[in-house]
């Protein structure tokens, strides 16, 4: 009987030790493999800012935004060219859709949101900014978001500024189909519709952040 007890004890201890070691190993690796953002992540995404020098600006995280957070703000400069603000936004994990990171580029002279791209995607497929611009809901389907989007894209400073001010929400601006169409001919993966929601969140966060920190005071 004592022997049996001893073996049981040994079994349980061995398992417990293995489990603890595994959990510790994973938590260490998780912190090592955690991807933190640097301005290098902005390079090569948008051809108009190729060759720009990027300087990190402290992220102002006074206000929490829903759906994600701004993880990097950098100011890009180049002699004789417009200044740009590059932002990295990380949207929250939504079910099995992992965190996605979006880079957005705003021309600081016109205040126009010129380009958005995925840095890392939580699901397979891609999001094409140009396509979204062409297919965003507008006209008959006018929503505040669509108006804002059109304004943001106009490249005209007063229009852009008005758009940042009037902006309410981008939800519904881009049709679900847009994201699905741009899954690079890969069959739509789980998380495709969540990708759309994450994209809305990313736009909303950037819009709010830019308005709070760069437009409001002017």
């Amino acid at each position: 009987m004592a022997k049996a007890k001893e073996t049981t004890l040994r079994c349980v201890t061995t398992l417990a030790v293995i489990a603890v070691v595994c959990a510790l190993l994973l938590s260490v690796l998780n912190s090592v493999l955690y991807v933190s953002a640097t301005p290098d992540d902005l390079i090569g995404l948008y051809s108009a800012v190729d060759g720009y020098e990027w300087e990190v600006v402290d992220v102002n995280d006074d206000q929490p935004y829903s759906g994600g957070k701004v993880i990097l703000v950098a100011k890009g400069t180049m002699d004789g060219k417009d200044d740009y603000l590059g932002l990295l936004v990380q949207t929250e994990k939504n079910g099995k859709l992992n965190e996605s990171t979006y880079a957005m580029f705003i021309n600081m002279n016109t205040d126009a949101l010129e380009y958005a791209a995925f840095v890392t995607e939580g699901a397979t497929g891609g999001f094409n900014w140009q396509y979204a611009k062409e297919h965003s809901k507008s006209g008959d389907q006018v929503s505040t978001g669509a108006t804002a989007l059109t304004g943001l894209l106009s490249g005209d400073k007063s229009n852009s500024q008005a758009a940042w001010r009037e902006w309410e929400s981008f939800y519904g601006v881009i049709t679900d189909q847009t994201a699905l169409d741009y899954t690079d001919a890969v069959p739509a993966k789980t998380g495709a519709t969540r990708t759309v929601t994450a994209t809305y969140d990313a736009f909303n966060i950037v819009a709010r952040y830019y308005y709070d920190n760069f437009v409001k005071g002017e």
Binding site: G95, K96, L97, T190, G191, T193, R194
Partner: peptide, 8 residues
């Protein structure tokens, strides 16, 4: 267990 986390 994995699929119910992903499924729309």
């Amino acid at each position: 267990a994995e699929l119910v986390l992903t499924s729309n």
